[in-house]
Design a binder for these strands. Structure first.
Length: 472
RNA sequence: GGCCACGUGGCGGAGUGGUGACGCAGCGGAUUGCAAAUCCGCGUACUCCGGUUCAAUUCCGGACGUGGCCUCCA
């Protein structure tokens, strides 16, 4: 079977087009990662999950060793400084910052691992790439795309004739907005900082322009160049990064290198609301990945990471999502159906994921269409003689980053709490004595604990058996 | 104010210039001590107004609505 042609929507051209890697033996993707100052929220999880699916698809299409995926860790930022001062007021600043960034980075990595994501090939930190950033800034100054003013190095947007291509805005539009505070030392209000000076109580690095720290966009230009080259295939992130972040990355990289493109395809995931409202701390509906994994912040109980993953993928990545308990319930039900259907699949290293799933994903990551194919597969797997379908279903779920038994309970040697086994045995005794009232009482008692019983006949002996699952 | 997305049945969500995808929920049936699970069956939706067309939910224009960006933000 031939591999379907991958097509992707490109923000740069606002169209969907066939994807052709610059070098099929090394397909290169860069995704903007977290700024490590606080728990990642559920909105942060979306690009992580979406681009993980793309990473998996690229590995499937071009070969696992032929894909390089870089996701950075931003560990220099004024929000980090503020957090360090707040949380560790008695430590020296550098030590306090290190505590904040290490703790937050560890939390992020364990959160996203729970979401079923593969590790990116490389996860560079901004602070390990300061020298590279300085080289870029020097190049920009040498080519007169940047200037030094009031102790800052600024990018001169007027020096780039086609600035604004990605976001579809021009400098006049930006001026029309007129809400940008015009700073006197800027030649143009849209000019942005490449390097700024640090006070003694701020983190800083020595540079030709004095002790200071990098601006907000330069790190991605530096790290993508270092690990992926001056021009690479795919650059991804959230919708909100189109402007100014990605626009300015493009400006820096292209002007420094004299290239006509930084990345061929620019992909942006849509935004997310929580229960129909914009997520914000003031509304009190700010939900972190960790809240969902560990607490009852949404729906009164914790959720499995792969349920969060499916809830996120149920909607096309470019569409807005209303993240809600109802959605999570639906995702959990669907994933449980899939896991049940794949139960007892023969383990196999050679079984390939379902072709219809690959085809659907190859059409600009149409995950929902893929899930329809999985539904069909699950139905076939559940039937008599569905062994081959089971194996393919299991391979498909694994390929997509879902667990095979995270939602299963009493079957497959799942650990059964003794009190449940005892109650089930008692109930079967009552049933054999035709004492239905007592049997129903026991069943209700378990139901109150969230344990749902299901009776069925043993296929061999015709005897009544009872299985259970936790039900919320 | 400028720029950019998007508006499909109770909900989620594909897709298409011409016989209502699919899932969840719901309803009916089989099965069951009763349930659950499972299986079978059931749904005349495409924001509004114009235009193009033999034919539009699908193409074009406008209106309205929602969301995003223009300031750190996934």
């Amino acid at each position: 079977m031939t591999t379907p042609q991958l097509t992707l929507y490109n923000t740069l051209t606002r169209t969907k087009a066939p994807f052709t890697p610059l070098d099929p033996s090394n397909v290169r993707m860069y995704v903007c990662g977290p700024t490590v100052y606080d728990f990642a929220h559920i909105g942060n999880a979306r690009p992580v999950i979406v681009f993980d699916v793309l990473f998996r698809l690229l590995r499937h299409t071009y070969g696992a060793e032929q894909v390089t995926y870089v996701r950075n860790i931003t560990d220099v930022d004024d929000k980090i400084n503020a957090r360090a001062l707040r949380d560790f007021p008695n430590l020296p600043l550098n030590e306090a910052i290190r505590r904040v960034t290490e703790r937050t980075e560890d939390q992020f990595l364990s959160d996203v691992a729970a979401l079923g994501t593969l590790d990116p090939t490389i996860q560079p930190r901004a602070t390990d790439n300061i020298a590279e950033m300085q080289t870029l800034i020097s190049d920009l100054l040498a080519k007169e795309h940047a200037y030094n003013a009031a102790g800052e190095v600024l990018f001169d947007v007027k020096s780039m004739p086609d600035y604004g291509q990605l976001s579809g805005r021009n400098l006049e539009d930006n001026l029309a907005g007129a809400r940008i505070a015009v700073e006197a030392h800027k030649k143009n209000p849209a000019d942005f900082v490449l390097w700024k000076q640090s006070a003694d109580n701020e983190p800083g690095w020595d540079s030709p322009w004095g002790r200071g720290r990098p601006g907000w966009h330069i790190e991605c230009s530096a790290m993508s160049e270092r690990y992926l080259g001056q021009t690479f295939d795919i650059h991804g992130g959230g919708l909100d990064l189109i402007f100014p972040h990605h626009e300015n990355e493009i400006a820096q990289s292209r002007c420094a290198h004299g290239t006509h493109a930084m990345a061929t395809v620019w992909m942006h995931n849509g935004f997310l609301q929580v229960e129909g409202q914009k997520m914000s701390k003031s509304l009190g509906n700010f939900v972190t990945i960790n809240d969902l994994l560990q607490t009852g912040a949404m729906g009164g109980h914790a959720w499995s990471g792969d349920v969060l993953r499916l809830a996120m993928l149920m909607t096309h990545y470019r569409e807005p999502i209303d993240f809600s308990v109802k959605r999570l319930d639906e995702a959990e039900g669907k994933l449980r159906d899939w896991q049940r259907a794949a139960r007892d699949a023969e383990p196999s290293d050679t079984e390939a994921p379902d072709e219809a799933v690959i085809t659907a994903l190859s059409d600009d990551l149409n995950f929902h269409r893929a899930s329809v194919a999985i539904d069909a597969l699950a139905k076939l797997a559940g039937r008599e003689g569905g062994e081959a379908f089971k194996a393919r279903l299991a391979a498909t779920l694994t390929f997509l980053g879902f667990g095979l038994d995270t939602l299963l309970t009493s079957d497959d040697g799942w650990v059964e709490p003794p009190h449940i086994a005892a109650a089930i045995a008692q109930r079967l005794e009552a049933l054999n004595a035709k004492n239905f009232a007592e049997a129903d009482r026991l069943r209700d008692e378990l139901a109150e604990q969230g344990i749902a019983l299901m009776d069925y006949k043993d296929p061999e002996t015709g005897e009544r058996r009872t299985k259970w699952e936790s039900k919320r």
